[in-house]
Design a binder for these strands. Structure first.
Length: 427
RNA sequence: GGGCAGGUUCCAGAGUGGCCAAAUGGGGCGGACUGUAAAUCCGCUGAUUCGUCUUCAUAGGUUCGAAUCCUAUCCUGCCCA
């Protein structure tokens, strides 16, 4: 199976330019994917393009990871409803560094290898290009008509929020990246999410007109859940790759919570498991869906891939303890070390021991620990039966919190809903 | 620069002097069922010491009373130059 066939099987090819497959079969090809420095960490959504690069490199080609220092200053308008917020330079620099550090984990940068991965930053070449140079040398090659015809742009123009010139320029800037990499790195292929198709094609067009060369492209489908909602969100927002932002436990839980339909798709896209194994897993899952073998394997593979074997073991242990039926009893028997071990990835909040000794009503307690943003919300949630303490459901707002609830004289396990845990530590 | 239409709670979008913390839909959250699934059903979705308080672009004003009327300002879209 060649690379494209492989990716097709995994459901990772949306649009592909004619000749791309032939190019990949012909020779070792350099290809790139761009990453936006909108935050200082990548999130699970960025995993798809990362995996494109990983597959590419495994197939013997050379991956380039482009960090969009320059494009990040402009903001990609593609399919966005409204004008993007501008990030200041310091933030951008900080974000670029963070993303770069993460990407280094997933690709092989060993310079001894002919297909060693490389990291590039488009700010490096854009910082020296003046506006006049750019519009004369590059802008000339592409018509506004062409740019406006792009679906990603047309929607904004036809919408009622408009689009600034800055954002309109974006596809040209990105297109120039491709041209630059083509001429400087012999890069002939750009990949990305399907929302990038328009921008990518502008790049191949520039390569053709300005360098008289031939460049290729393919995109992968934008990740969505089976019900059409956005992929990569949990109750607490984005699921990040940075363990400081999303702990390995939370990360593990994210994948474990995938629906059956999603899990079957994810396992192909996000893991490097062989076909036979994936087929077997899917079949096993269909026979006994309640065992959730797919989700468990998916969560395991991803947690190890992004974090580590050890992180996975902690996440697994914590998950098994927190979600078993007799947890309320087990909790009481755990030693402090065992507790800390298991609760490692659970968000922790502190409360003063003196306050607890005095006793506190549940609503105030939940609001002060910031487990809920306001007393009103805390009260509603308790009344709706959505809060448990040490795995026992809180029956009413009269409940008072005091030292008698402490586990090992120090901890209280608060549960919001079915699967959101907080460890309160008394100090 | 001129004309027109707009800016409402997370989003879309009603409301055009009191019955408005503001319809409806979506999203989100929670509950029941279950498998930490899907589907379905139910509840919540500004804050609160439950007296009220702060909100309908911003600042003033009219009025007993304004999201709704007036004035200025800012922002957006469309058309004309």
């Amino acid at each position: 199976m060649n690379l494209i066939e492989e990716l097709r099987w995994r459901g990772m090819v949306q649009d592909i330019m004619p000749g791309t497959e032939e190019q990949l079969l012909k020779e070792m090809t350099t290809a790139y994917v761009g990453f936006d420095p909108t935050a200082d960490s990548l999130h699970v959504g960025s995993l798809v393009p990362i995996l494109l690069l990983v597959h590419l490199q495994r197939a013997g080609h050379k991956p380039l990871a482009l960090v969009g220092g320059a494009t990040g200053m402009v903001g990609d308008p593609s399919f966005k409803a409204a004008e993007r917020k501008m990030l200041d330079l310091d933030t951008l620099k900080h974000n670029q560094a963070g993303i770069k550090a993460q990407l280094e984990k997933f690709l092989d940068f060993d310079p001894a290898k002919p297909n060693a991965a490389e990291m590039v930053n488009n700010y490096d070449w854009f910082q020296n290009i003046t506006f006049l140079d750019f519009i004369r040398d590059t802008g000339k090659h592409i018509t506004v008509n062409y740019m406006m015809a792009k679906d990603s742009v047309r929607r904004r123009i036809e919408g009622d929020s408009g689009m600034s010139f800055t954002e309109f320029t974006y596809q040209l800037i990105q297109g120039y990246d491709f041209y630059h990499l083509y001429t400087h790195k012999n890069c002939k292929l750009q990949m990305g999410g399907s929302d990038q198709w328009g921008n990518i094609v502008t790049g191949t067009e520039l390569v053709r007109r300005k360098a008289d060369g031939e460049a290729f492209a393919f995109t992968c489908p934008l990740m969505k859940k089976a019900d059409g909602t956005k992929f990569g969100k949990s109750e607490n927002g984005n699921v990040w790759l940075d363990p400081k932002l999303t702990s390995p436990y939370q990360f593990y839980q994210f994948w474990l919570n995938a629906t059956d339909v999603d899990a079957a798709n994810y396992i192909k896209i996000f893991t490097l498991l062989e076909h036979a194994e994936i087929d077997a897993l899917i079949e096993a899952h269909q026979h006994a869906p309640e065992q959730r073998q797919l989700q468990k394997r998916l969560a395991k593979e991803l947690t190890i891939f992004i974090h580590s074997e050890k992180d996975y073991e902690f996440a697994l242990k914590a998950s098994e303890l927190l979600f078993r039926n007799d947890t309320a009893d087990v909790l009481q028997t755990l030693t402090e070390d065992q507790l800390m071990d298991v609760m490692d990835g659970v968000p922790q909040v502190e409360v003063s021991l003196a306050d607890l000794q005095a006793g506190k009503d549940i609503v105030t307690f939940l609001a002060e620990t910031a487990i809920f943003p306001s007393k009103t919300e805390a009260r509603k949630m308790v009344q709706g039966g959505g809060v448990s303490i040490n795995k026992l459901k809180v029956e009413g707002i009269e409940k008072s919190i005091d030292t008698s609830l402490l586990l090992r004289d120090k901890y209280i396990l608060v549960q919001k809903g079915k699967r959101n845990y907080y460890l309160v530590i008394a100090r």
